[in-house]
């Protein structure tokens, strides 16, 4: 199901809930950018991530050849 289009009124309410006062003209500029980002993010649901935990930091895999030390 397609989500409803994002409106400036929606953003104004969210900003208010988050304690931010953002001029309506700024929200009008933000709305299409956010709509595009949300659409792209929605497509990420189709990737095979169901069994994956968030990565957060790209942890090194361990010392490379010739390195001293290593993980404890």
């Amino acid at each position: 199901m397609m989500p409803d289009p994002l409106t400036v009124d929606d953003l104004e309410r969210i900003a208010h809930l988050a304690g931010m006062s953002i001029p309506r003209s700024d929200l009008e500029r933000l709305a299409p950018l956010l709509e595009a980002l949300y659409a792209d993010l929605d497509r990420l649901r189709n990737l095979p991530i169901a069994d994956l935990e968030p990565a957060f930091t790209p942890r090194p895999s361990g010392p490379a050849e010739g390195e001293r030390g290593g993980r404890p």
Binding site: I14, L34, L41, L52, P54, A55, P58
Partner: peptide, 21 residues
Amino acid sequence: LRQGTFLTATQYLRAQRVRAL
């Protein structure tokens, strides 16, 4: 910066799970 304030926690975590993939 304001774009970031309108992202949800689940959207952020989805992005981090995609990062794992």
